[in-house]
């Protein structure tokens, strides 16, 4: 086992020809996009930081946070990330597209569960009057959690689209490269969620 091969992006089982070089460049370009997204998320986090305590007499962190639901959402998203990495591995080591698709569907189902839980939580917030227009704190909370949720939803569309492409065309080099980039996006969203559950929910009720 060579250290170099192990460190290569998962799914980059393309040899060392022109295709592999192109895929590496595409992945780097996708990293640039992810980093711009990181700046967006980071600044929404900063805005949230300025709005902590700005509850204007409305519902605060204690009313807004359901730790049991947050724990389940965290588990679902981490499980989804792990399933996606397993899909990347079965793609990289040519374990057949059936296996790749199964793990992709695990990842998608888990992420869908996350979105459903999040939707139920947000609907509960509306029921107790914790709508975004109630206070600065709630505006920032909805913006941050909503932005992350939208990203997960877009990721799900990506899995759907790639599933169709894999079924139609098989695991070609182009599609492998796309799955690799979607994987980076997927794991990146899990990192953002680590920030959200720690800084928004847990720190809110600590």
């Amino acid at each position: 086992m060579s250290a170099k091969a192990q460190n290569a992006h998962p799914g980059m089982n393309l040899g060392y020809g022109e295709g592999a070089r192109k895929a590496e460049v595409d992945v780097f370009g996708f990293w640039v996009f992810l980093m711009t997204d990181l700046v967006t998320f980071g600044l929404v986090f900063a805005i949230f930081g300025t709005m902590v305590g700005a509850t204007a007499g409305g519902p605060g962190p204690e009313e807004v946070t359901d730790l049991r639901s947050i724990a389940i959402q965290t588990a679902l998203l981490l499980g989804s990330s792990f399933a996606f990495s397993w899909a990347s591995l079965s793609m990289k080591y040519d374990r057949g597209r059936g296996r790749t698709l199964i793990f992709l569907s695990f990842a998608a189902t888990s992420a869908l569960g996350f979105l459903v839980m999040e939707f139920i939580d947000l609907r509960h917030l509306v029921e107790i009057g914790a709508t975004p227009q109630r206070s600065g704190y709630l505006s920032a909370l909805w913006a941050l959690v909503g932005l992350h949720g939208l990203h997960v939803a877009v990721g799900l569309l990506g899995v759907g689209s790639l599933t169709g492409q894999i079924l139609l065309y098989g695991l070609t080099d182009k599609i492998k490269s796309r799955v690799t980039r979607l994987g980076l996006y997927w794991h990146f969203l899990d990192i953002v969620w680590v920030g959200i559950f720690s800084m928004v929910y847990l720190a809110g009720v600590a």
């Binding site: 250290a3 170099k4 460190n7 290569a8 992006h9 998962p10 990330s81 990495s85 980076l184 794991h187 990146f188 899990d190 990192i191 680590v194 920030g195 720690s198 800084m199 847990l202 720190a203 600590a206």
Partner: peptide, 25 residues
Amino acid sequence: LIVLALTQIVVHLRVFLHIDLTRQK
């Protein structure tokens, strides 16, 4: 919480996003 979150982010970057100190990365 901040230390635990930062540690977890580093773990995710290393394991899931394949960021490491090799020249390739």
